[in-house]
């Protein structure tokens, strides 16, 4: 259940951003969650609800987008979706793959008043 610590870090960032923008109300927050990250969106939602209830952030909507895994081949330069966690280039079979998406765990946008 590391979702708890992740929500705590998320709330720290949200509160700091709200202070910066002089915002009083959080309407929604949007996250990008990489397919490879070890996050269960339902647990994250649940923790978010529990940890915001009774605070000024209560009722805010948590929107999560799952970002598919994408790789770039260091040998042939092509980009592709990494299917079934197979880190091999589908074009030239090279195992030298850079992960270019699908590992994120980031906050991308907030709607505040």
């Amino acid at each position: 259940m590391h979702e708890m610590s992740i929500v705590q870090s998320l709330l720290d960032i949200i509160q700091e951003e709200m202070r910066k923008h002089n915002a009083k109300l959080l309407r929604s927050v949007r996250l990008d969650i990489g397919q490879l990250s070890a996050i269960v969106p339902e647990s994250l939602s649940f923790c978010f609800e529990v940890m915001t209830s009774g605070t000024e952030l209560e009722g805010a909507e948590l929107i999560m987008e799952i970002i598919p895994l994408r790789g770039a081949c260091r040998d042939c330069g092509r980009e592709f979706e990494i299917k079934e966690y197979a880190f091999e280039c589908p074009h030239c079979s090279s195992p030298h793959i850079d992960t270019i998406a699908g590992q994120e765990l980031s906050i991308v946008e907030m709607e505040v008043d």
């Binding site: 992740i6 870090s9 998320l10 720290d12 960032i13 951003e17 923008h21 915002a23 996250l31 994120e104 765990l105 980031s106 906050i107 991308v108 946008e109 907030m110 709607e111 505040v112 008043d113």
Partner: peptide
């Protein structure tokens, strides 16, 4: 108001 904040959530730990 929409605020764009592209930030790694685990940034503090990192």
């Amino acid at each position: 108001m929409k605020v764009s904040v592209v930030k790694n959530i685990l940034e503090a730990n990192d």
